[in-house]
């Protein structure tokens, strides 16, 4: 039976190995080579030279910082927004299904296409955002969202949070189903208010789900490409040049495969650290208690 099972697994395993695992191995090999991109060009072993260069590469470091900033701000905002939406849409009310679906829509739309939509919203002359804020007296006319060093990153973050908060909401909704209703009732009988009920009863159960959301979203936000590429292209002045754009440039603009591979591996290592931290954080107190018993 187990042998037969292997047979069923094999095609899927083979595909995953070729498409997802082999590339990482290939990157590891490339990162130790200086690759000649000319047709029929070879490669020369250079040891850890690329990694040494990466440590002194100010441009790459700046892109890491930009990505980290983008990730931190995006995650904080979408966590709050997603959590809030989930808590509200967890309550039962007529039409809940349709409202949940509507809330989910931003997550399902093509990011590159919606980035074009956002570019139109942020347009300095015809954009609704500038016009709306000016009409409300909140903004001086002539603000160029995507042309300003600070506003551009904020604009990208807003578009990203809009898109990804529903994903956090989805995971939190799944988590809320796991909270035993009896506990809430018990807490209610003890006279706990809504805030206390949330922190004492709901939050411990949500913890692994929140960690999971942070894990997924952290990795994806750190690797964001589509949205930034279409919305700002990394500008103005590199203010939104996130690490994925830097890697893409290193491969396809600078044609430095070996160096790009080294930078990719370093990025992967950072993602690995983040994932490990989130897995640790996700081990909920409930699990630990269950384990100690």
């Amino acid at each position: 039976m187990r042998q037969e099972g292997l047979l069923y697994l094999l095609p899927a395993a083979a595909l995953l190995l070729v498409v997802l695992a082999a590339p990482v191995a290939r990157l590891a090999w490339l990162s130790l080579q200086e690759v000649e991109v000319t047709p029929g060009g070879g490669a020369e072993f250079v040891g850890l030279a690329h990694f040494a260069r990466a440590l002194a590469d100010g441009i790459f470091h700046r892109s890491l910082v930009t990505s980290a900033l983008f990730t931190a701000l995006s995650l904080a905002a979408e966590l709050l927004l997603g959590l809030g939406m989930a808590l509200i849409l967890h309550a039962s009310f007529p039409g809940r299904g349709a409202v949940r679906a509507a809330a989910l829509i931003p997550w399902t739309l093509p990011p590159a296409v919606m980035a074009i939509g956002w570019r139109w919203i942020y347009h300095d002359s015809y954009g609704i955002l500038t016009a709306g804020l000016v009409a409300l007296g909140l903004l001086a006319p002539g603000t160029t969202w995507l042309g300003d060093r600070h506003l551009a990153l904020a604009a990208v973050i807003v578009a990203d949070v809009w898109k990804t908060a529903p994903f956090v909401m989805l995971i939190v909704l799944a988590g809320l189903q796991a909270v035993p209703p009896e506990l809430h009732e018990a807490a209610l009988l003890d006279g706990a208010g809504p805030v206390r009920r949330f922190t004492m009863v709901t939050l411990p159960y949500l913890r692994p789900y929140l960690a999971l959301a942070l894990l997924f979203r952290g990795v994806q936000a750190f690797g964001v490409f589509d949205l930034v590429r279409v919305l700002t292209g990394g500008g103005p002045g590199g203010a939104t040049r996130v690490v994925a754009l830097a890697l893409y440039d290193t491969f396809y603009r600078y044609l430095e495969f070996g160096y790009g591979a080294a930078l990719t591996l370093l990025t992967l290592a950072l993602l690995g650290l983040w994932a490990a931290a989130m897995v640790r954080a996700g081990r909920s107190r409930l699990d630990q208690e269950a384990g100690s018993r």
Binding site: F216, V219, Q220, G223, Y248, F251, L268, L271
Partner: peptide, 13 residues
């Protein structure tokens, strides 16, 4: 694997 950002796979693929 599927969680990783696609930029990781793009060159080897």
């Amino acid at each position: 694997g599927a969680l990783l950002p696609p930029i990781v796979f793009v060159l080897p693929l």
